[in-house]
């Protein structure tokens, strides 16, 4: 479904600030794969997601979604294939529009937007059904402005908006990081449910090791722009937070050793 082949990206090339965010990244996701991505700050996780979503152009390599090479597609065209939820709960919804208007906008992901009525009876019925599944009572507040909702509610709504049109790929960028533990747990549960129900091919960045283990069927670890560790379905089931941490330590230690030798 998603294939990245030799993808590289360097920010500020040739300057003192040069930073290699992605180095020859190869990644294949089959339909229905749910891959969690972990790694320290600056490891290239967000760049990976931004490269897939088309927010930043890549320097080399090719990105295929559902057999189509999308390198040249701009962000808004890739949105046809890609659903996203951002870290900032405010980023995924329009605060001055109502819940039903936001959902209508999401419903037309990647389609032409014409002069047909935005919120129709038929659509509203579907929204009620979708919102009921969130179990947050939002189905009774269709005409409330989204700016009135809490961060957790907005993030749950963003998740629904990203997922309910069945995008080929769903990208979750630390989407629970800005929420309090209780809300984060709620959104984590919803994530698992929405991805499973939709059979969505998903890539989720997280800093929470436990979350990375709880969700998804595969796991990758990134460091300095490379995928340094990868666990398939079978391996992931046996992984523990401790094992991940030690893997993490090994990689960090290794780079340190290399530098020490080179220095």
């Amino acid at each position: 479904m998603l294939a990245m082949d030799g993808v590289s990206k360097t920010f500020f090339p040739g300057s003192v600030n040069e930073r290699r965010a992605l180095e020859d990244v190869n990644l294949q996701l089959d339909t229905g794969d749910f891959v969690t991505v972990i790694g320290s700050n600056g490891a290239g996780k967000s760049t990976l997601l931004n490269a897939i979503a088309g927010r930043i152009p890549v320097d080399a390599g090719r990105i295929d979604i559902d057999g189509t090479k999308v390198n040249r597609f701009k962000e808004h065209r890739r949105a046809t294939f890609v659903g996203r939820v951002f870290q900032d709960p405010m980023a995924g919804t329009a605060p001055d529009l109502t819940i039903e208007q936001n959902l209508s906008l999401a419903l037309l992901r990647g389609r032409r937007r014409g002069l047909a009525r935005g919120v129709t009876k038929k659509r509203r019925a579907r929204f009620v059904e979708e919102l009921r599944a969130l179990e947050l009572g939002l189905e009774h507040r269709l005409k409330a402005k989204v700016g009135l909702l809490s961060g957790g509610q907005r993030q749950a709504l963003s998740l629904l908006m990203a997922g309910f049109t069945h995008p080929r790929v769903l990208l979750l960028d630390e989407h629970t990081a800005a929420l309090d533990p209780q809300r984060a747990a709620l959104v984590t549960t919803l994530t698992g449910r929405i991805v499973e129900q939709g059979g969505l091919t998903t890539l989720m960045v997280t800093h929470n090791m436990q979350q990375a283990l709880d969700l998804g069927n595969r796991l990758i670890m990134m460091h300095e722009g490379c995928i340094v560790f990868s666990a398939d379905e079978k391996q992931k089931k046996t992984l523990t937070v401790e094992a991940l941490m030690s893997e993490f330590g090994k990689i960090k230690g290794a780079t340190f050793d290399d530098r020490a030798v080179l220095g």
């Binding site: 808004h76 949105a79 329009a94 605060p95 906008l105 037309l108 990647g110």
Partner: peptide
């Protein structure tokens, strides 16, 4: 309306 309200969001919706 969404363009004026949250450009990033509506861009990510295509």
């Amino acid at each position: 309306q969404a363009t004026g309200n949250n450009k990033q969001m509506i861009g990510s919706l295509g």
